Simulated assay, not measured.
Amino acid sequence: MHLNIQDGAIFVADSHYNETNQEFLIFLEKLKSEKIKTKQLFLMGDMFDFISSESTYFVKRNQKLIDIINELSFKMQIVYLEGNHDYNMKPLFKNIYVVKREDQAIFMKYKNKKLALSHGDNFTPILYNIYCKIIRNHMLLKFLNSIDYNNFISKKIYYTLMKKNICHNFNAFEHLAKKRVSFFEADIIIEGHFHQGKEYIFDEKRYVNIPSLCCSKEYTVLNDNKFEKVKL
């Protein structure tokens, strides 16, 4: 799908929403009240610490945010790139362009530039790709949901993830970014996933890593060819 990205588009990544990380709810409520305004919103993946449409527990736990996102989808264009913590989302968001991992990157246009957008966990070793396919299997997830008595599986996942430290400085990130640029035929590559919020230029290709909303409390606005980080 090719879309024209407009000035004022907002990119948000890796909020890992849970009862401790509340930034994504704050951001959505500011959009709803129009304290933050945009016509285009790009959710770059891992917006929830974990969710799939098959999981009754996680859908119920995140229902408030799901409802706000659906409400906002009638006021602005929303693109949701699934991450490694949020997948099989389309049944939850009927009016939103949801992009599965296997369909990423998606290519768009901004002025005279071609942009590639992905969460960032693609172009990975074959074993990881097999793992990703297994854990996203609809029938497997339905089965796990059916045996999740008293939510014991879901609660184990939820509280294990909540203890995980996801905010860190990746010293070799420039090297990784240069490698990732080689996978894309585009002028600008935009990704989340890595929680670094850094930008590089390699051989006239521009690489933009959207900061983690959870870690740095920032989202990104595109204006006049500049990706501006804005504090929540």
Results as ranks from 00 to 15, higher is better:
residue 131 Y to S: 04
residue 212 S to E: 12
residue 131 Y to W: 09
residue 67 D to C: 00
residue 123 F to N: 12
residue 58 F to T: 08
residue 191 E to C: 08
residue 179 K to L: 07
residue 107 F to V: 09
residue 58 F to C: 10
residue 101 R to H: 03
residue 59 V to T: 06
residue 23 E to K: 15
residue 84 N to P: 06
residue 117 L to A: 04
residue 59 V to A: 01
residue 50 F to S: 04
residue 201 I to D: 04
residue 220 T to I: 05
residue 208 V to Q: 13
residue 53 S to Y: 11
residue 31 L to Q: 10
residue 53 S to C: 12
residue 13 A to M: 05
residue 81 L to R: 11
residue 73 S to Y: 06
residue 92 L to I: 09
residue 187 D to W: 05
residue 191 E to Q: 14
residue 77 Q to M: 05
residue 107 F to M: 06
residue 114 K to W: 00
residue 189 I to H: 02
residue 207 Y to K: 06
residue 197 G to K: 00
residue 213 L to C: 10
residue 25 L to V: 13
residue 173 F to H: 15
residue 63 Q to A: 04
residue 55 S to R: 01
residue 154 S to C: 08
residue 116 A to H: 05
residue 31 L to Y: 11
residue 25 L to I: 14
residue 56 T to Q: 13
residue 94 K to A: 13
residue 207 Y to I: 14
residue 77 Q to H: 03
residue 187 D to I: 09
residue 184 F to V: 14
residue 172 A to S: 13
residue 95 N to C: 00
residue 193 H to T: 01
residue 69 I to C: 05
residue 30 K to G: 04
residue 128 Y to D: 12
residue 135 I to G: 00
residue 199 E to G: 01
residue 122 N to D: 11
residue 204 E to F: 07
residue 127 L to V: 15
residue 185 E to T: 14
residue 185 E to K: 15
residue 66 I to C: 07
residue 13 A to K: 07
residue 86 D to G: 01
residue 227 F to N: 14
residue 16 H to E: 11
residue 12 V to C: 12
residue 89 M to D: 02
residue 53 S to V: 11
residue 220 T to G: 02
residue 148 D to N: 15
residue 128 Y to Q: 13
residue 135 I to E: 03
residue 134 I to V: 15
